[in-house]
Write a protein that binds this DNA or RNA. Structure first.
Lengths: 118, 118
DNA sequence: AGAGTATATCGATGTATGTCAATATACAGA
DNA sequence: TCTGTATATTGACATACATCGATATACTCT
């Protein structure tokens, strides 16, 4: 029934993610996939991460800055970033000692589209 | 940190639910509220319920029909319908012996809007 | 190579919640 | 009022996962 978040492949943000929720009867498999995506957003910390990254003028943030901003441990923040990354909502780039995260706006737009009537 | 789903008040679908996720730095409280809403959608069964209700020509369905459509027990379906109702995503109306559920499209639209840049 | 910093992984634990059987409640019709 | 049907609630249980400390890995600089 569930699609385990931990076992998700890194999402391809160019592929369409799911049919619109209200446009037709979705299958159980489609429901599981879409639910897995919403489960990624169903976390206060992860929403704050997305918001924090989005407001940066350069649209990207180093992970260590995010650890300071949220009041969570470094392993916990690292975990959330990984979940967001594997859902295709973030992309990352190593830059010397640190890793910079950016939001994948197309992926968010896809998800947004599923809440419409298609 | 969390807003417990069970303890949510019946949402007022006319009130704005949350600021757009990408338009500014959201607070921890806003993140908790918004996460609680996404948690409602983070369930395959609930997404199927929304989809099933939406495709009906009259845009409404009796609960007993939904029990048959999903392959879940009546208490479980009743539980999911309650969660959707309390999140403001469904409205219900007793009609004789059965209860008809309809989708609150405005509420879904609000949620959709939070995924945009505002 | 060695030290220091940033990030990721591991293992353990607590909590939220999906699920069902059993039961309760609400309503319609005889 | 009694019977049958539809829906909701309760209680118990299993599981997903958020969280952290400890540790591992990756990189830079000297």
């Amino acid at each position: 029934m569930y699609v385990n978040i931990q076992s998700m492949e890194r999402a391809d943000s160019t592929a369409p993610c799911c049919p619109p929720l209200l446009a037709g009867k979705i299958t159980a498999a489609e429901a599981s996939q879409l639910a897995a995506l919403f489960r990624v957003l169903a976390e206060p910390a992860r929403l704050q991460l997305l918001s924090l990254i989005a407001v940066q003028p350069q649209q990207e943030v180093r992970a260590c800055e995010l650890v300071e901003a949220l009041k969570l441990s470094q392993p916990t923040v690292s975990h959330h970033l990984k979940v967001l990354y594997e859902a295709g909502l973030l992309e990352k780039e190593r830059r010397g000692n640190w890793i910079c995260y950016r939001i994948v706006k197309d992926r968010l737009a896809q998800l947004q589209a599923t809440l419409g009537a298609g």
